[in-house]
Structure formats: C-alpha cells, structure tokens
Design a protein around this nucleic acid. Structure first.
Lengths: 202, 202
DNA sequence: CGGTCAACTGACAGTGGCTCGCAGTTCGGC
DNA sequence: GCCGAACTGCGAGCCACTGTCAGTTGACCG
C-alpha cells in the first residue's frame, strides 16, 4: 500500500512533482510531433534536461510517462470516506462523477485530453491502463470488504467491482471517440446506469 | 479481420500448428523450471529446435507464446451462429459455458491450467490478455450490432459487452485462485448471473 | 546553524525483447 | 517437373529497462 497521508509536502517532494509534470508535458509534445513509438526515453530526457535514469525512477516505464497522474490515491480516499454513509455503488458513482470531473480538470484539461488520446490509441499504453484498472479494482474490493464485511476475494464482489471499473473505462473510451462532445460526467452516469440496472439487450 | 474459413488445412498449416504447440509446451516447461522472466526467447528456440525469428513470426511476442490458442475464432463463430436464434446474453452464456468448457479441455486440460497460471500471475501476460479481451469485445460488439441493428459504437452496447467479458475474466481469475476447485462452467454461470441481474451490494 | 545521514541523481555498462532485410528452402498449383 | 509464393534461418541493430556506483542535496537534530 502506498502512503496516502496528506502532510504538507517537503521541498524534495515538490521538486519531484514539478519535474514529473514537466517531463510529462515535454514527452507529450514530442509524441505529438513524432509519434509515440518514434520518441525514445533518451530524447525525452535530453529535452527535459534530466537523466534517463531519473525518468525510469519517476515513472517506471515509458507508458507511465503518459498515464501517471496524482489522482488515484485521492479517488481511493474519497471513496473510502463516502463508504461510511452510503452504499458502495452510490459512493463510487459520486467519486467517479463529481470528484473525477472536477479534480481531474482543475489543473489542465488540455493535457488530460492529450493523455487520453494515447491511452486509447496506443495499444501498449492501453494495456498498461488495464493493469492500473486491475490494481484499482483490488483496492476497491478491499475497501468495500472493510466496510461491509464481505469476502474481498469472493466471486460476486470480484465481478461487481470489475464491471464498475470496466464501465468507467468504456465511458472514457466513448468520451474520447465522440470527440469529447458530451460532458464526461453525463457519460459516466449513463454507463453506470447500464450495469446497475442489469443487462437487457433485446 | 482474420480468415475464419474451415478448409481442410494444408501440409504447411499443419506443420506450423504442430510447431507452435511444440514451442508452447517447451516454453511452459522452461518457465516452470526457471521462471518466466529468466527464460529468454533464444533459449526456448534452442530447446524447441527452431530459430528465434520463427518464434516471433509465429507468436509475435513472448507473452503470446503463453496466451496463444486455437479457440478464439471458434468461439466467435459459435457465438455468431447462436445469435440468429437467441438473444445475445443467452447466446454468449452458452458459448462461454458449453463451448469453452468442452472445446477448451478436449485437447489438454493440464496445459490449459499451466497457461492460466502465467496469465494470472505474470503481470505482462495479464496485460496482454486484457488486450486480447479488448479485441474480443470489439468483435462481439460488431457481431451483436449485425444481428440486432444496434450501434456497435454506442455507449450502451460498449458497456454491456465490456461487462460481460470482464465477468468472464473474473471467473477465470476466481477459478485459478481457488485452485480449480469448482467447475469452470458453474463459476462462469454464477459470474454472468451477477451482472445480468444488475448490481446490488447492500 | 552546522554536521550527519538518508535519499536522490547522473553516468555507465549490460541484458534481452523485438524488428528488418536478405539469402536460401519448401510447399502448392499448373 | 516447374514456377512463384510463402516460409525459414541468419545477422545486424534499436531501444526499453535494470543494476551499480560515486557524487550531491535536502531533511533532521543537537
């Protein structure tokens, strides 16, 4: 489990965060210019004036340079907070709509959309995102289990959690595919409706 | 789209299939002995008495050496056939339970389980499987759209399809995690029940 | 405020997955 | 049998990623 405490953030951590944001933006510029596959980590490092080693230490993999953001732990905490008062689905709906659509965009929506492009179009990045989704699903299951006393590894909770997350992913994909026409909040709400009410395809 | 015709299979294709099965089995042996990460393609090639180039030509990536099998096109065709008479969910349930649990095991269940182990425990392989799932979801959506006249890229069909596939994946994960104790058919049936009836976690 | 230690950074060498082009071989149809 | 197409092995090369080590910098404590 990663550290989720909210202490004021020392100079070291602030520098690191600033560097990561800078590297990500530089990388996106290069990707837009030359295509994801044609840009090497070495080149990103040179352009961002850090060493390649640092990029790997910060992000771990090339895909995570695109996928990384600061919201996952925030979302999980927001979910945990709401679970005390609400049932899991209502809580997750709130987090996914309200929290995500506000927190995610308060910084820079344009960067968000550019990242989304690669997350959808570049197969290796999409795969990495699925993996992130798996991790998130595990955290979610554990959190729900903690609050309701259910078995975190039981079949039912597994299926429910996976369905909710994949619905969210499909909402993102749909949002991107339709050129960000509708508001993400409405799409996510619609997607959650579909699975919540059960499947009817007649 | 790949070729799904069922013509008798020439000598060339039979040789290739036999080689692929052989390489996969040799690779699984080496993985079991030394661990997935510690076995190089070069070593698999030497052990299986083919060139590394051939392995890449056959499987494309190292992960696909584990994931590859001959059933995906069969499943899709079985699904397409059933869709004429049944509604999509019933058809998919039949394919996933009957067809999969019989066709998948008629060849060699032990190999199936060994592959499952790596598909679940090795993160890179799990990621590749998610990607396969995405492809399958696209095919499924197109097939359903063809039979029902729905929009293959609409939000609702996207969510339904993704939920069904992720339920199947979770069933596989659960099956593996519980040591293959229960029959896969029953688990898959149970997982499909959960999403079909809609989500209730109270 | 100065010293100490832990954490971070950059440089470097190495591994191996994967690609590409080429020359030789083998199967399939006429 | 014979021709063209598909397949195979070989070799060179790219680059994502890892581990190590020496040097530096922020954090903490007296």
């Amino acid at each position: 489990m990663t550290d989720t405490t909210m202490r004021p953030l020392g100079l070291r951590e602030r520098k690191k965060l600033k560097a990561m944001r800078h590297i990500q933006e530089v990388a996106l510029d290069l990707f837009d210019r030359d295509g994801y596959a044609h840009v090497t980590i070495e080149r990103i490092a040179a352009e961002a004036e850090v060493s390649p080693s640092s990029i790997y230490r910060y992000f771990g993999t090339k895909e995570m340079v695109v996928l990384w953001d600061e919201y996952d732990p925030i979302m999980l905490k927001a979910f945990d907070d709401r679970l005390a008062a609400k049932d899991p689905i209502a809580a997750l709906r709130e987090v996914l709509t309200d929290v995500v659509t506000t927190a995610m965009f308060e910084q820079d929506e344009r960067i968000m959309r550019r990242r989304m492009y690669y997350a959808m179009e570049e197969p290796s990045i999409r795969a990495a995102m699925s993996r992130q989704g798996d991790d998130m699903a595990l955290d979610l299951r554990r959190t729900i289990a903690k609050h309701t006393g259910r078995d975190p590894d039981g079949l039912e909770l597994r299926v429910v959690t996976a369905a909710l997350i994949s619905a969210f992913m499909e909402a993102l994909a749909y949002w991107h595919e339709t050129g960000f026409r509708d508001s993400l909040k409405e799409i996510v709400d619609g997607a959650l409706d579909v699975i919540e009410r059960g499947l009817r395809v007649e």
